[in-house]
Amino acid sequence: MAEANLKVFRGEKDSGTFENYKVPIEEGMVVLDAIHYIQQNIDPTIAVRWNCKAAKCGSCSAEVNGRPQLLCKSRMDKFEPGEEITVQPIKTFPHVKDLVSDVSWNYEVNKKIVPFTPKPGHNWVVYQEDIERVQEFRKCIECFLCQNVCHVLRDHDRKDGFYGPRFMVRLAGLEMHPVDSANRLKMVKEDAGVGFCNITKCCTEVCPEDIHITDNAIIPLKERVVDEFYDPIAKFFKSVFKAK
């Protein structure tokens, strides 16, 4: 039977080594299956976070050959026969053990976002074309691969100033909701730090749900921030029209 060469990071809290494993390949196998094979047959202590195994829950985020992706979606037949497959935990968040990182920062960020605030007395007649944009953002499975790959968080470590692509998506979904009445643009500009994003689109590249994070969420938010803070002319006209 064909065998795959896996090189998996093993260790706790950053200190550790890459260890090599040979895993028999089955048809249709994904990297998560290979890790499970190791767990069941070689070393039951190897840690990997996973849940649905169908790319719906976003738990098994890791980096395979340096590319952030879901382990349950990384098919083994995409690799050359005999190719060494490096599997590492996601880099941007503190390491726990083996392939598991501590992503709790994201949950803290989520708490800061002003929640959905429906217009009082709205009749809830809402048309499909008005929510289609928002529905794209609601596809997010919170795998945090976008947070992991975003260089602002990953390399510059600006978790103090930037909420990251995941929460730009959430903010965009709230701001574009036809029934929402809160204004989060000051937050988008300041606390969420949309200006840190230089739209280099890695978040979009890694999104397993194919959300067009940059084009459909971040850039529209940037343009809304321009409306509010950088476009005095438009603002002037708007206030004139409103005054009438």
């Binding site: 980096e63 340096g66 590319r67 952030p68 790959v149 260089h151 602002v152 390399d155 510059h156 470590d157 600006r158 730090g193 200006g195 840190f196 994003c197 230089n198 890695c202 590249e205 890694v206 940037k222």
Partner: peptide, 16 residues
């Protein structure tokens, strides 16, 4: 993507 940036001191993005 996933490749280290060149120089990471004082990155301000499009804020400044």
């Amino acid at each position: 993507c996933g490749v280290k940036v060149y120089g990471n001191k004082g990155y301000t993005g499009e804020r400044a």
